[in-house]
Design a protein around this nucleic acid. Structure first.
Lengths: 199, 199
DNA sequence: ACTGTAGGCCAACACGTGTTGACATCGCCT
DNA sequence: AGGCGATGTCAACACGTGTTGGCCTACAGT
């Protein structure tokens, strides 16, 4: 019974598991949750649909595994304060240009409550946490992170999902030049004169 | 055969037609295209599913009718140039706070190609046209309209679809104070120093 | 009162879906 | 070699979907 790695033992099926996950990410990204069928995913992975069930339990379970997403945000405390917007914008564009998982999550979040919940989690946990490290008054961090999310997700939506031509045509550097200052302002601008001051 | 109004004659079924459309808009807005079933829409309208088919031909046809959307943008040529962002932002928030059609279109556009096409149409025709009337160099109007769309749709996405708490919590005036300047900048800021100048 | 037509309902079809269980096969361990 | 769990395949189930055609009912025109 005493093997060297009882838990981390490399299983023979790992390749299959990975193939399923890869196919699932692609399908979810292009078709959304509902239209992405287990049969299609299984066909892409050259595997029987029942294997998907065996390894991931259900379609929901498969999606949960496929939509695990790490924004890989840099430590904003180490970024020069006047380059926060530029840095963050460039990072996001690079990140989802290389990995379709976020687009899959975005497409699914439009109709699937669980996906929307996960989307909230990604931005609440990762983005808000990163923003908190770069903001003067911690009380405003959540609000600022929300505004940043609205612009960043709007960019992803118009560029990769709706595919608005003028947004698709901008190259990453132009994109950064235009929306970088927006992000910068959301992060560093003092609170607007509030009529009904909150916290 | 010569009635007074041959085409505009009020049919007895108009109430039913309207009820179907109203129910369809609600269902599409909350559930998205795929999860909104004809049976559910018909039940909401207290009507038989087959009536939906008779009046709108197919589910696609029903959606096309339900997703007809007019942004009702003001004439931006009559708005003081330094209040464009504020005006536009406030208008959008009011507009979709009162009418869920745009949210229905947004949810559907995430997975349905036809809906995405229509979304592109709405913003290309209506927004770009309005923006063109307020911008100095007409050549940049499409790009500026695209950037405006990215922030405006991002706001709608995070506030009404994903429901990110910090964005949901902002009241319309705070929202205007924060994102108004962003829109203003996209509309009036000179082009950023372009490294590879396009058109 | 009779008829034609529009409005409405019911039952069913054909299809694709997620999911399940029974059966075959591979490869490691003793 | 023999046994046994992990891998994988096949066929089917139960269900919900969009869609269709037949039938009943109420009302307008004569």
């Amino acid at each position: 019974m005493d093997v060297t790695e009882p838990a981390t033992r490399a299983r023979r099926s790992d390749a299959t598991r990975a193939a399923i996950l890869r196919a699932a990410r692609e399908r979810f990204a292009t078709d959304g949750y509902d239209r992405a069928t287990i049969r299609a995913i299984a066909a892409d992975a050259r595997i029987d649909p029942s294997m998907v069930m065996r390894y991931y339990g259900s379609k929901e379970g498969l999606f949960a595994a496929a939509a695990e997403f790490d924004l890989r945000l840099p430590d904003l405390a180490e970024v020069p304060p006047d380059r926060l917007g530029e840095t963050l914008t460039r990072h996001f564009v690079r990140r989802w240009e290389a990995d379709g998982t976020l687009v899959a999550l975005l497409r699914a979040a439009a109709t699937n409550p669980g996906a929307a919940e996960r989307m909230r989690g990604v931005f609440a946990d990762q983005l808000a946490a990163a923003v908190a490290r770069s903001v003067a008054e911690p009380a405003t961090a959540a609000r600022r992170a929300g505004l940043v999310a609205s612009q960043i997700l709007g960019l992803a939506l118009t560029r990769y999902v709706v595919r608005l031509p003028p947004v698709v045509d901008l190259d990453p550097e132009e994109l950064t030049a235009w929306v970088g200052p927006t992000i910068q302002r959301y992060l560093t601008q003092p609170l607007p004169p509030s009529h009904a001051s909150g916290g």
